[in-house]
Write a protein that binds this DNA or RNA. Structure first.
Length: 462
RNA sequence: GUGGAUGUAGUUCAGUUGGUUAGAAUGCUGGAUUGUGGUUCCAGAGGUCGCCGGUUCAAAUCCGGUCUUCCACCCCA
């Protein structure tokens, strides 16, 4: 009995219709990346587990997909561990490879491994799938694409500003309204230092983030539960209730953090970034958000997160600065900063808002109706001329009923149908039908080419 | 990982307290219309009711397990 096949949960097939839209996103993003001087690299889907483990925190380690060793791996496994049935301890014995969890850590590995061939500052982009053994939900997949841009080997805050410009340009091109939220790990560290609880910073930000949802009282309650003293919570109050525009927030922060050197460095970095961004006069809404912590524990400076304004979905882009990611692999003093665009979530947002362009460079612009053997040969010659002019065109492969061929054109949303029968062949013309208006007229091939080009340019521009 | 929902033609969904041959809309195929699609009319095809097991004379319907999708938490793109 043939059972219906399936694919693992959280993974998807992409149909041509979907791929055209996805590629539109990828191409738009790539174009912006390249405009700012970033070049592509690719790394393998799997990495050594030693490269991946311990880089994403405890939570991240659990979400790594591990690959079983080849051969009869259990034979070589420790008998005691097998008897114990302790999966965690056994994993290191039977698996030494894993699927990449993001693109940043493999990139750090790449930089270290190729440090002698790389010119610093090194600016690269990377668009590839990553895998997480998460529980899937809407906008949360087990296999999804990240579009990373990073620059390593430069401490300049200009890089942070450049990334904000890139975010602005990408989402402007895709016509998505977004807010970019900005924070700085050093500010968070300063806050933690101030209340003497360096290890509690994640708990603190998680709790503060819930202010809108559960109210001040419950936030404080949660902080108490997490083990914070009442003095510490008192100190935190002005930070929890921080309001106003970015400049006001920064001013208040400065006041609270004046004794913390790290904290003040963070505030100063934020100030500089905001100053430059304001000078650029970009439309993008840039907001200081202290509740932005980001779980990935390698961030050390700026942290970014982008949210769509019109759709309820997790962040669609995120990133930050990491001072010592390559240090773990033995290359010291190489600071990097980067962000990652979540292509799948961007797709979901655009799909929900129905803001994909109807026509892209991938769409066919003209379909030739097939009337028979003589006619199709004639069309073939016309087609090569048309294609040479850079127009996507096709000839229906079978000489079937016209209704069927028209329906095909209609479904593929081809804007023009060309008909060349006996009379057209003799007259040396083409009957060109505009599928939108239904109008048709006899034109020359040159005419057809210019008409197609004109409408295509209009479509793509809109 | 924890808690909670969900699954019926390609798609969106009906389906009564378990009871004849499981329906609709839309889509699909063919025809009305042998050189004209998106409108209309007619006809047709399409379902082991997610999967496995149990209760029953009888299960889409009740029970258990499993998988999928979705929601909350967690985390994140």
């Amino acid at each position: 009995m043939a059972q219906k096949p399936g694919i693992p949960k959280g993974t998807r097939d992409f149909s041509p219709e979907v791929m055209v839209k996805r590629n539109y996103i990828f191409n738009s993003i790539k174009k912006v990346f390249q405009k700012y001087g970033y070049l592509p690299i690719e790394t393998p889907a799997m990495e050594n587990l030693s490269t991946l483990m311990g880089k994403y925190g405890e939570e991240g380690d659990k979400l790594l997909f591990k690959i079983l060793n080849s051969g009869d791996f259990l034979k070589k496994a420790d008998d005691n561990l097998l008897a114990e049935k302790s999966s965690n301890k056994l994993v290191s014995k039977i698996s030494e490879k894993g699927l990449r969890y993001d693109l940043t850590v493999p990139f750090a590995r790449f930089v270290v491994q190729h440090q002698n061939d790389i010119v610093f500052p090194f600016k690269r982009y990377q668009i590839q799938p990553v895998w997480r053994a998460d529980r899937p939900q809407k906008g949360r997949y087990r296999e999804f694409y990240q579009c990373d841009v990073d620059v390593v080997g430069s401490n300049s805050l200009l890089n942070e500003v450049e990334l904000i410009q890139i975010v602005d340009e990408v989402f402007k091109a895709l016509k998505i309204n977004v807010v970019i939220k900005l924070n700085n790990r050093k500010v968070l560290a300063g806050i933690a230092e101030k209340i003497g609880a360096l290890d509690k910073i994640v708990d603190i930000t998680v709790a503060i983030d819930k202010l809108d949802k559960i109210g001040l009282e419950n936030v404080n309650k949660e902080l108490t539960e997490k083990g914070l003293s009442s003095e510490a919570i008192d100190t935190l109050q002005p930070i929890i209730l921080l309001e106003g525009d970015n400049a006001v927030k920064l001013k208040k922060l400065k006041d609270v953090l004046k004794d913390s050197e790290t904290g003040m460095t963070g505030v100063s970095e934020l100030e500089q970034v905001f100053e430059m961004v304001n000078m650029l006069n970009i439309d993008l809404e840039v907001e200081l958000d202290l509740t932005l912590a980001r779980g990935l524990n390698y961030y050390t400076g700026a942290i970014f997160e982008v949210k769509a304004k019109d759709v309820q979905i997790g962040s669609i882009t995120g990133g930050g600065r990491y001072d010592d990611l390559t240090g773990i692999f033995g290359l010291k003093d190489v600071s990097g900063v980067g962000i990652s665009f979540g292509a799948d979530r961007i797709y979901d947002v655009m799909n929900q808002l129905e803001i994909f362009p109807k026509h892209t460079d991938a769409s066919v612009q003209v379909l030739f109706v097939n009337f028979g053997d003589k006619e199709q040969l004639h069309c073939l010659r016309l087609l090569s001329e048309i294609r040479k002019a850079g127009i996507n065109a096709e000839l229906y492969p079978d000489s079937v009923k016209m209704k069927k061929q028209m329906t095909y054109a209609n479904k593929k949303q081809v804007p023009f149908v060309a008909m060349v029968g006996e009379t057209e062949m003799i007259e040396g013309v083409v009957t060109l039908k505009n599928m939108n208006s239904g109008e048709q007229e006899k034109v020359t091939v040159d005419n057809l080419i210019s008409t197609c080009k004109e409408t295509h340019n209009q479509h793509v521009r809109n």
